[in-house]
Amino acid sequence: MMVSLGNVLFNGLAYGMLLFVISVGLSVTMGLMGFANLAHGAFAMLGGYVATTLMNKAGVPFLLTLPIAFVAVAAVSVVLERVLYRRLYRAGELDQVLLTIGLVFMAVAGATYVWGPGQQPVRMPDYLTGQWTVAGIDIGVYRLFMILVGIAVTAALVLGIERTRFGAMIRAAVDNPRMAQGCGINVNRVFSLTFMAGSGLAGLGGAVGINLIGLDPGFPVKFMVYFLIVVAVGGLGSIKGSLIAALLLGVFDVGGKYYVPEVGAFIIYAVMVSLLLWRPAGLFGRR
């Protein structure tokens, strides 16, 4: 039986929203500082583990674990940023890539050590389970929740960046860091805070995504390419670009798995490569 197009679109949108929530922080930090952070997925994984540990060991309700995951990951990331990342802002991509691959290895081994190699069991609260059928489309309640979270994050980001003073500082720093520094903006501090928020969002995404994509120590490696595709295709530092790229990736990935499973992720990688050849800076990149 063919799965209806509506279902594919709906599930793809939910998946895309998840990819967006996790990747958008990476996009902004890569656009801001040009830092190739392959360890971004490790932050998402950490968020997931914080949430499951709180739920399973301390009985904290699921919705409450989400903000805690955000804060915990943001706190960890700012320590890493101060101790490790900051030393390599002026270094080449190669050094950044190597450092963050090293961090990924450490995170994967560390997570295996602390939480074991298997998938983390999670039980979602009853009000987030089940599904409705509307006009022939199966609407999973959890996927709907995921889409709502994605919309909320998008709205918060757009408002935060377009309407607040700090958002204006970020935009200035992305456009021209030297000029921004010259105007008295502390670019380093702006970057630290942005990095923190972006990593926190990854943590939130990791927590909210367990129910959709699972959680095990291989997470940072398994999804690294997806996050990078979102960033590279969307264009560095572009929220709009990340959103569109993430939704497209989500829909095509889900659709590909339903309709042409024998081809697998082949198409996605091939499309990414050809897209980057057409526009090396991504769909909405400026540089």
Binding site: M30, G34, A36, E93, V97, V225, L228, I229, V231, A232, L236, Y269, A270, M272, V273, L276, L277, P280, A281, G282
Partner: peptide, 9 residues
């Protein structure tokens, strides 16, 4: 970054 992504891709 595009070079990294293309070679990886």
């Amino acid at each position: 970054i595009a070079l990294l992504m293309v070679t990886l891709g």
